[in-house]
Design a protein around this nucleic acid. Sequence first.
RNA 1: GGGGGGAUACCAGAGCGGUCAAAUGGGGCAGACUGUAAAUCUGUUGGCUAAGCCUUCGGAGGUUCGAAUCCUCCUCCCCCCA
Length: 308
Amino acid sequence: MPAISPAAQGKYLLVVLGPTAVGKTALAIKLAHYFGTEIVSADSRQFFKELKIGTAIPLATELEMVAHHFIGNLTIQDSYNVSRFETEALAVIDRILSKKNVAILVGGSGLYINAVCQGIDEMPDADAPLRAQLNADFEQFGIEPLREKLKLLDPLYYSKTDMANHKRIIRALEVCLATGRPYSSFMTHQAKARNFIPIKIGIKREREELNARINRRVDLMIEQGLVAEAHQFLPLRHLNSLQTVGYRELFSYFDGKYTLDEAIDKIKVNSRRYAKKQMTWFAREKEINWFDAAETNKIIDWVKTQLL
RNA sequence: GGGGGGAUACCAGAGCGGUCAAAUGGGGCAGACUGUAAAUCUGUUGGCUAAGCCUUCGGAGGUUCGAAUCCUCCUCCCCCCA
């Protein structure tokens, strides 16, 4: 449970979460409308203003109806991270809660939601040249030397973490090397105090129904011009912001690796997997109150009982 | 009409007498996750009363101590020549 500061008295953050395509946007807007408040997005891909079709940002009419934050606030060229989001999102939430008693956080990026609700430990950002060096080492010599190095610099982390995952090894190493301290020594496992009481609302649907919605949404994205949208960014495909479902598969199509139909099928498959990953992430969180996507009125009624 | 190739688990596809419940890839299912997180990584994938047993490699027979692998016939598919 997150720590609650005295300032949190009577201030609530409604956190709307769930897998992609489940219907979070619609519910969040309904809640925002009902409580007369604003929406903070916790979607790590809707930040990028160029990625419109492929990330299913809210409709223009929806964006007009309710104030949204963190949608299209970055360029795909920007580098961003959870920690910055924590700081910036908290500032916006505080501002909303200075005028209202309820704010809404909505999104599917579990790590980003947790950063807002519980915080993320203080530790250095990635140092670009150092990361580039480590990545180059990985390319050239493989994972084993990196593992050995980490075993020396942070035996605790080494023993507890998946040592097949090069990205995690590299991140740990870059912190160790940049600070001279073991990466694991920065982890407090303590939730930070917040100026609001989070109320987590999980939205779910039957898997089959969710899959059907995903498929339909992908087809719609294609109709809306996703292929052209993705094509513009082909030269920038290496950017982190473009390591995104819907774009990568089309890059492969432009490469001639897939036919268009194959690429579209791949987008559907990868979206389903993304949804499953999100559900796995959320499944381990205890304080989520789950509702069926159709139960909008029930959700509002329930939320009212929580705001005491 | 003649000649040749093939049918393997959800799909594709290897295996060509024992070490095969059957490689590998795809898909499915499950999981991990602290500044790349729509990323990255892991496990599992015939059934069961589960260190053992049972039913599988188009169908039916046969050879053999032993067959997905060899033989015979049948069914279906593909290619080449007419």
